[in-house]
Nucleic acid binder design. Structure first.
Lengths: 348, 348
DNA sequence: TTGAGGACTCAAACCGGTTTACTGATGGCG
DNA sequence: CGCCATCAGTAAACCGGTTTGAGTCCTCAA
């Protein structure tokens, strides 16, 4: 005889098999008191036999909570596959979420309109309990909007960003920049330029500010700055602009690795050698950084750990529990071949 | 007086406001007949007034479907932020999913055990209706396992992969490789080596086979092959191995861009110039490819379109509808500066 | 005039859990 | 010994939708 067309096994089946009520099973699976050790054992055995596990669907409805959080990734197509941030961040988030049996719902959107729609959909459909917010911009209105939708929120932003009372996982972008400038200074560089990423972002601003403040502290002149956009093309353009200057810099600090690598390429095209004629520092430490010619000196941040911290914090927020205090590892500064001593020493 | 502590608005509120039953509201929101035009209008107005939208939670339970699909990303930490595949694929998936109001649930896992656990959790918790499977390996048992879990499945794999009856979105990895080999041949290259990616993957195998077959077609000797692992370190190691050969190749075709770029770096370190002494071809066209020195000749695939096709297919599968036939754009071969005519012409 | 059929509409059951209120049975204690 | 607190366990309500079955009202053909 064939197998009976097997329906999905439910909590009722488990209860029947263990000879108890549905409530008892529910209590056991939610670590609530009110079930004897013997009964608990029978219930667990029955569940194991039947291969039963509470359905997230049913649970979500009765608890009015999804056990899922959302992440909206907004990226220009050009930058989508370059950015080392999101893959690492998501890997970290995963670590923090699976430990608490949460899931991550993802939306990848191209522009602001679709981004807003994604958050609204999250809220209206009750698909997630809370969301992460990254790529914060100066004067960003999204935190308020998201809060208004009734979603719990954890913001990921550089230290010192105006958080307006939101829960923030903050990383110290400035520390890396400071180390970079000190490194260049110790190599004798005097004219240190900066190529900024896309304007408007808090982290773009934070990096520029740290660059400027460190130069001031060291008594160096505030070198030229060019605003770019985090893309390779933008980095190349900015580099040409800087090298066209009557008094070009001897070192350039870029807002990310992609621009820095494009910068090396642009310089090389002009016959300017790196690092003999020009020192280059990136930001991110993409996996390719050690393998470009010359290998890129850059700032490495532990993005995975931010993700984990952000996830733990968001889960705690959703469950109205005390958020664990997480210690984020400090930034690292990785010296490779793209920086070297300057030849044109401080002019008289 | 203060605002009344507002509860979540439900279908009942909408029904009451429109003066109809819950069923009528449900019918309207599911495009089912049986509601007069007048009633429909009142219902839509009421819903709009109240800002109501069906709750995904409740809908998932009553329909026994989540309107969400899952993607499990397994990547070694080293490769996580390098791989241009997943970000683009996810962006494409998003396009296909939002059109049908589906969501994407993501898990990023480090190894096989956690990967299996992720699929099991998807199924047991009923969190998703179907899943994508990528990075198919030779003799992969996962399609069977996933099917056994009762999840609908769409496999993304190179053409010719043994699909065992699964629904497959297949891309033609071989076409790109063939174009690359022809390109090198037309430049006069005779000894064309291949650096493979991580062994065991269907796409690693497909690329190697295409390389070999094209060489044979052109009457060229089957050059040396080295197995690597898609990482920069692996690519560098493989390159040194090839250049150490008594009769080193004049051109190397790599399994991906990261290895190719590391290969250029390794060759440069040895004083071998690219492309004068050695031509290099990558695979992927990462955004950095135009900006390394020299700019990388490589194969570009439209991964976004795979994602969209895969998403549309999976949704159709889940809903037991006819899958749309999607035409995937052909691969492109991008010639840049890392390939050039060989100096040591075909030996006598 | 009647009956069949179609168009609308609604009440109730259902999806599969969680939570609440309540019942018995113990047990500790004054 | 009597009373109250505690523990184990259950039935039923509930979460917020979808789906089914039955009922009402109209229209049209026989």
């Amino acid at each position: 005889m064939g197998t009976i067309p097997r329906k999905r096994v439910t909590i009722g089946d488990v209860a029947a098999r263990a000879g108890v009520s549905k409530s008892a099973v529910s209590f056991v699976f939610n670590d609530r008191p009110g079930v004897s050790a013997a009964a608990k054992e029978r219930i667990l055995a029955a569940a194991a036999d039947l291969g039963w596990q509470p359905s997230a669907r049913a649970r979500a409805l009765s608890r009015s909570r999804t056990q899922a959080v959302g992440l909206v990734i907004r990226r220009e197509p050009e930058l989508l596959s370059t950015d080392p941030f999101f893959p690492q961040f998501m890997a970290g988030v995963e670590i923090g979420l699976t430990a608490r049996d949460y899931s991550l719902v993802l939306h990848v959107v191209p522009d602001e309109k679709t981004e807003r729609a994604a958050y609204e959909r999250f809220a209206r459909e009750s698909r997630v309990d809370g969301v992460f917010l990254t790529d914060v911009r100066v004067g960003d209105s999204r935190p308020r909007e998201i809060a208004a939708l009734g979603l719990d929120l954890v913001v990921i932003a550089p230290e010192g960003a105006d958080a307006g009372g939101d829960v923030v996982i903050s990383m110290d972008d400035g520390a890396g920049v400071r180390r970079a400038v000190h490194h260049l200074h110790s190599l004798g560089h005097h004219r240190i330029a900066h190529v900024m990423g896309a304007p408007g972002y808090v982290h773009t601003e934070a990096r520029r500010r740290a660059w400027q403040e460190t130069l001031a502290e060291l008594g160096l002149p505030i070198g030229p700055v060019v605003t770019a956009d985090f893309t390779g093309a933008g980095g190349a353009r900015a580099t040409h602009e800087l090298l066209d200057l009557p008094q070009p810099p001897s070192a350039i600090l870029y807002g990310n690795d992609l621009m820095a690598i494009a910068g090396i390429s642009a310089a090389t095209d002009r016959g300017i050698r790196v690092p003999e004629d020009l020192s280059v520092v990136g930001f991110d430490d993409v996996p390719l950084a050690p393998y470009v010619v010359p290998p890129l000196t850059t700032v490495r941040q532990n993005v995975v750990s931010w993700g984990t911290a952000a996830a733990q914090t968001l889960v705690a927020l959703v469950e109205r529990k005390q958020a664990p205090t997480v210690q984020l590892p400090p930034v690292e500064f990785v010296v490779r071949g793209s920086t070297g001593p300057t030849r044109n020493r401080r002019p008289a």
